[in-house]
């Protein structure tokens, strides 16, 4: 029988990574420097790789024979389990780096904890991802420092970006389904370590910790912003236009 809570948990991790990779892909050819085109492509590729292994595992847990592509391309937005943080547009470099700092710091702590899971597949995926995400955190940290402590203009833009992302941080720490407590990492236990890391970077970047109320969550239950539907329409349209085709 399908372990629905574990499937949803795995889909949550997978969809976070997939949707984030989709947003990151936009930057390739649009970054402020050529080196950054390369770096953001790298990060997007890491996230996409995580999404693929996690979706494949979700397909196995589901036991309905669905592949990574079936799950990525043939689910509607109400079936996606990602947090809202990663799905909103990301066309400002300050926003991209603020979000990457928040998301990758969360992912780093989550994957570290998950690498000790008794679920061998998830622990293996997590152990590999820790190495990748460590670099993402490092990359985002350096940019938040440069932009926060760069020019007066960049400082102001970085603060605006951080403030705009902040309402969506709270959802990262959505409590775990109680049936999974002994099996996987509990996001609600990560609030302190994640925020401690972020606070350190924000302070060093001469920025202020945002004082804004959290946005309503719901991503893990498939309640998303309006943006996800557009993102999926673009991502899925070709695949869906040729039902049953092999690519």
């Amino acid at each position: 029988m399908t372990d629905r809570p574990l499937l949803d948990y795995t889909l949550g991790l997978a969809d976070d990574a997939l949707v984030s990779a989709q947003r990151m892909g936009w930057w390739i050819s649009r970054a402020p420097e050529l080196e950054e085109d390369v770096a953001l492509a790298n990060i997007g590729l890491d996230q996409l790789g995580q999404a693929r292994t996690l979706l494949t595992y979700a397909g196995e847990l589901e036991q309905e024979g669905r592949t990574e592509d079936d799950l990525a391309y043939l689910r509607d937005d109400r079936e996606f389990r990602n947090v809202k943080l990663v799905e909103r547009p990301m066309t400002d470099f300050g926003v991209a780096m603020a979000r990457l700092l928040l998301f990758s710091t969360y992912q780093l702590h989550l994957y570290r904890a998950l690498s000790a899971s008794s679920d061998a597949t998830l622990s293996g995926i997590a152990a590999k991802a820790v190495k990748e995400v460590t670099y993402h955190v490092d990359h985002a940290t350096h940019w938040v420092l440069r932009l926060g402590d760069g020019t007066a203009g960049s400082h102001a833009r970085m603060q605006v970006a951080l403030d705009a992302e902040w309402p969506y941080v709270d959802e990262l720490f959505t409590p775990l389904d109680p049936t999974l407590t002994r099996l996987v990492a509990d996001p609600s236990a990560l609030r302190d370590p994640v925020l401690t890391d972020v606070r350190r970077v924000v302070a060093e970047a001469t920025l202020a910790m945002p004082e804004v109320a959290p946005a309503l969550g719901g991503g893990r239950q498939g309640l998303h912003t309006e943006h996800l539907g557009h993102l999926l329409a673009e991502m899925q349209h070709l695949h869906r236009s040729h039902p049953g085709a092999t690519w």
């Binding site: 997939l18 989709q22 892909g25 936009w26 390739i28 050819s29 050529l34 085109d37 390369v38 492509a41 790298n42 997007g44 590729l45 996409l48 790789g49 999404a51 693929r52 979706l55 990574e68 592509d69 990525a72 391309y73 673009e234 991502m235 349209h237 070709l238 695949h239 040729h242 085709a245 690519w247």
Partner: peptide
């Protein structure tokens, strides 16, 4: 953004990255 499979998406991202 529209690559028709995740494998093709990964290959294409890596290719465009190679060009950079």
């Amino acid at each position: 953004s529209r690559a028709p499979s995740l494998r093709r998406k990964a290959i294409l991202m890596a290719k465009v990255q190679d060009e950079a």
